[in-house]
């Protein structure tokens, strides 16, 4: 069959809402687009461990510390799971991590913002996980099987995280003046970056149309953004917090994306440091495994 016929057949399967599986034929562009999106998603989970990990040692109660540790661990688990799902498309986790560390691959820009107070941990759970869920629930029906299945599991945990984040905010909102101020300031800091998580306005979104045709994406950036605002507004009212008014500053979005956010350098540096300092450990594990195997062979 020629490529054109294969592509027609492929699109027909997508239009019939069939799932594409790793061994099925798929257009190169579809494979490349999925690798890009899924790897970006996996990297976001890994880099996303850092801003919240910043508060593990300072969580204000032991219960909050345990919840936060478990949450950051879940993110690592999501990363591992998504890297595996991406590997079904013919790349290795090692390649993907190299691309993250040398700056070729992207991760969600939101994680380039700092967490100066405990309230930022709450705001991340409430707003950032909230926005992520909004983005990710449609992905549970995405046309690529391994990605869709990964997202079902991840969304379940994310909604748990979102409630935990909101609970932190609720406690602060009912607390002292200083705690309420802390909560409001965190909302002020995270509101705009959270709205930017849905991507550029539809008119400027370069990947959107094709992703929609492939049913990797099912709703436009602006639709999801509006839905998020509708959801979040009454939640903020219940907290007695005020949602910032105004317009999204898209020049900030582009600057942070281009590497000029408040913590871009620190985030990548932290990942690189962990990777570099872990090299001798990974080498030791490989060397030991080789020795064991050699000993087993001798014994046979």
């Amino acid at each position: 069959m020629d490529t054109e016929a294969l592509e027609r057949q492929f699109q027909a399967r997508i239009d019939a809402d069939e799932r594409i599986e790793p061994k099925d034929w798929m257009p190169d562009a579809y494979r490349r687009a999925l690798i890009r999106q899924m790897a970006q998603h996996a990297h976001s989970e890994i880099v996303g461990m850092l801003p919240e990990g910043n508060w593990i040692t300072r969580a204000p109660t032991l219960k909050r510390k345990a919840i936060l540790m478990a949450k950051v661990q879940d993110e690592g688990g999501h990363g591992a799971y998504l890297y595996s799902a991406t590997e079904t498309l013919g790349v290795t986790r090692g390649q993907l991590i190299d691309e993250l560390l040398d700056g070729r691959a992207r991760y969600s820009s939101i994680f380039n913002y700092p967490t100066p107070t405990w309230a930022d941990v709450g705001a991340i759970g409430w707003l950032v996980d909230g926005a992520a869920i909004m983005n990710q629930i449609p992905l549970c029906r995405c046309s690529y099987g391994p990605y869709a299945r990964a997202m079902v599991r991840i969304c379940r945990e994310e909604s748990f995280h979102q409630r935990q984040g909101y609970d932190i905010m609720l406690q602060l909102a009912r607390g002292s003046d200083a705690q309420r101020r802390m909560a409001q300031q965190a909302l002020d800091r995270w509101w705009w970056p959270a709205l930017m998580m849905f991507g550029p306005p539809d008119a400027d979104s370069k990947h959107s149309a094709q992703s929609m045709r492939w049913k990797v994406k099912r709703f436009s950036n602006d639709e999801l953004r509006e839905r998020f605002i509708e959801f979040t507004t009454p939640q903020a009212e219940y907290l007695g917090l005020v949602i910032p008014q105004g317009e999204i500053d898209w020049s900030e979005f582009r600057d942070v994306l281009d590497g000029h956010g408040p913590c871009n350098r620190e985030r990548l540096a932290a990942r690189r440091r962990a990777h570099d300092q872990g090299r001798w450990v990974r080498e030791a594990a490989l060397a030991h495994a080789a020795k064991r195997e050699a000993r087993l062979r001798e014994a046979v």
Binding site: G53, T57, M69, Q73, A80, A270, A274, Q277, V281
Partner: peptide, 13 residues
């Protein structure tokens, strides 16, 4: 807890 997110490999995190 200081190490979570900074371990030598994801599995170790």
């Amino acid at each position: 807890g200081e190490l979570i997110g900074h371990a030598p490999a994801l599995e170790e995190d």
